[in-house]
Design a protein around this nucleic acid. Structure first.
Length: 229
DNA sequence: TGCCAGGCCGGGT
DNA sequence: ACCCGGCATGGC
């Protein structure tokens, strides 16, 4: 059996169990970008607080964040953790976006005209934006067909033996992108399904997932390497 | 209470 | 080229 059909079967099993996820949660493309930075190694619930603070302060725009006092920005995003680092990362991102247009709408339109690879390189050149954050922005804010590989994706695939433990980010991404139709909505929703199944059934200390919808497709999961003892 | 959360960077081997 | 500590808050 090809890994292509396995991965597509996985998606349909998850879609059947959870329904269309409608990701990413965010009112505007720029808010999606902000969320992508704020959620780095951070619970989404904390990110929502920080986003609400930014909105309430009228700061959810590239120009406003680019012009903000560092201390003010830090206070607003404090609930999302790592607030000193993330305030710098947000400002650099905001300056980058603002460079593409007079307002958010114009900038985002200009960004969407550009090539995926060119955009990825520019995003990765911003300190504090790594592969996952860049790809989250590419997919969910700019609608480029890339697969976002996150901790849940790696854990779910790894536990079912579909990737090797030593795989890099881009190894895992290639497995998924090679197997799937080049479809933006599929890429968005499949990644969201990984998060959903990961949160519910693939926690670090809970290898027994008796009700996981993936059992019907993939069979019993394996132990994580560090749990295999 | 400790462990965990939708990473990434920089310095040390 | 790898490995590792640091970064920080809030929920369970």
């Amino acid at each position: 059996m090809s890994s292509s059909s396995t991965l597509n079967d996985m998606y349909h099993a998850l879609l059947g169990a959870f329904g269309h996820r409608g990701w990413w949660p965010g009112e505007t493309p720029f808010e999606v970008m902000v969320g992508a930075v704020l959620t780095q190694n951070t619970n989404w619930q904390n990110v929502e607080r920080a986003i609400a603070n930014l909105r309430a302060a009228g700061m959810m725009s590239p120009a406003a964040i680019a012009a903000a006092q560092p201390a003010d920005l830090q206070q607003l995003i404090r609930p999302a953790g790592y607030f000193r680092q993330k305030s710098v990362r947000l400002r650099r991102l905001a300056e980058w976006v603002a460079g593409f247009g007079a307002d958010e709408g114009e900038a985002v339109c200009a960004l969407r005209e550009r090539s995926t690879e060119g955009l990825r390189e520019e995003l990765l050149s911003l300190k504090g934006i790594g592969p996952e954050t860049a790809d989250s922005i590419l997919l969910y804010a700019l609608h480029k067909p890339v697969f976002v590989v996150d901790a849940y994706t790696v854990r779910v695939l790894g536990r079912h033996g579909l990737i090797e433990p030593e795989c890099t980010y881009y190894d895992v991404q290639a497995v998924l992108e090679d197997a799937l139709a080049r479809d933006v909505e599929l890429h968005k929703d499949f990644h969201a399904q990984f998060v959903e199944v990961g949160k519910r059934f693939c926690r670090p200390r809970a290898p027994r997932c008796t009700d996981c919808p993936l059992l019907a497709v993939l069979g019993e999961p394996e132990l994580d390497e560090e749990q295999a003892d």
